[in-house]
Structures are given as C-alpha cells and as structure tokens.
C-alpha cells in the first residue's frame, strides 16, 4: 500500500485514504464544441500509460478532499512528488 504525501495536509498518508482519479496532464479542450471528434475522443480515451515516471491524479478523499497530482514511478511503484491539482 502506497504512502502518498499530501501537500495540503502536509503529511504522508496511506493509499486507502485516497481515491485514484486517472492520468494527470489531460487538457480539456478550451472550447469542446469546436474540438474535432478525433481531438475530443483523444481527450476522453487516449492515455500515455507510461512505463516509468508518470503523473496521476489522486484525491485525498478521507482527508482534505483535494485533488492532487502525484508523480509516481510505475516501474518500482515509488511516489516521488505530490502537488495540489
């Protein structure tokens, strides 16, 4: 079970206090109505699923409630950094 540092609560807390919320860094098109079908479905479904260092969103659900961007190495499952989303 991961230990995830929460920058809002200012302490590392066990994974079960958090809810995973998918890959970070997705950019919702500024004007979705003007986005092409391809751009929109990429936003919805295309994920990098990186091997190695990647950023993902977690919400400190049973804590401060904030969404965070957590940097994790998917190879060794280490959390490297965590900032508010």
């Amino acid at each position: 079970m991961l230990l995830i540092p929460c920058p809002v609560c200012n302490m590392a807390r066990p994974e079960r206090e958090f809810r995973y919320a998918g890959e970070a860094g997705l950019v919702r098109p500024h004007d979705p109505g003007a986005a092409s079908d391809q751009d929109w479905t990429d936003y919805l479904f295309a994920r990098a699923n990186r091997k190695g260092v990647h950023e993902e969103r977690w919400r400190h659900l049973h804590g401060c409630g904030r969404f965070l961007v957590v940097t994790r190495d998917t190879v060794n499952d280490r959390v490297l950094q965590s900032v508010p989303a």
Binding site: D31, P32, G33, A35, D37, W40
Partner: peptide, 13 residues
C-alpha cells in the same frame, strides 16, 4: 446554454 460535461460527446457519431 453552451458547454457542459458530456455535451461534446453527445455529438460523437
């Protein structure tokens, strides 16, 4: 009313 969550997807083929 403009954009809302899910609006754009309703126009996907």
């Amino acid at each position: 009313k403009g954009d809302f969550v899910g609006a754009r997807s309703l126009r996907l083929p």
